[in-house]
Amino acid sequence: MITCPFCGSENIEGSDLCDDCQHSLTDLSIPQPGTSVERGLLKDRIQLLKLRTACNVAPEVPVRTVLKQMAAESIGCVMIVEGEALKGIFTERDALCRLNADVAQFADRPISSVMTTAPVTLESKDRIAFALHKMHVGGYRHIPIMEAGKLVGVISIRDILHYLSERISAAT
């Protein structure tokens, strides 16, 4: 049931016009952000989060070198960049799923043979809600952030969790 905001009569769900007074009911179905957290998610842009500098490697670098670099710097993902174009991403999960216990066989191959090609990216001017949507629906831990086709950084699910928990604690 939808209650008409103009005359108060009840209409069946999904009606475009109020049966009684013929006022339009279509605006009522537009979702409205209810809390300050939701408003923030739809208003704040990704650049508000502190972007982490992405760790870039060239596609021909051997797997061995990339693994060493990831372990030494304690990072979970590297971006594979050729020139200025983002070619792929290689994460801990790729290491676990593609290299696994056979890591010795892959050690001298180029990283481009085991990376994930065409990762999901977002622009730094996009809203945080989109980042949360992509990460939650896609199950990603990292999203590369672009600005005019150039990689400018990466955000992780922990940055988002930090943002959310701060907002929620501020709201309650």
Binding site: P31, P33, G34, T35, V37, E38, L41, L42, L122, E123, D126, R127, A129, F130, L132, H133, M135, H136, V137, G139, I157, I160, L161, L164, I168
Partner: peptide
Amino acid sequence: YGIVHYLVDHFPQTIYTLPPDP
């Protein structure tokens, strides 16, 4: 992931109704 899932449960309309491309 679980905690993010739990938080998204509190504002599903804001997150789940977004278009795939901003």
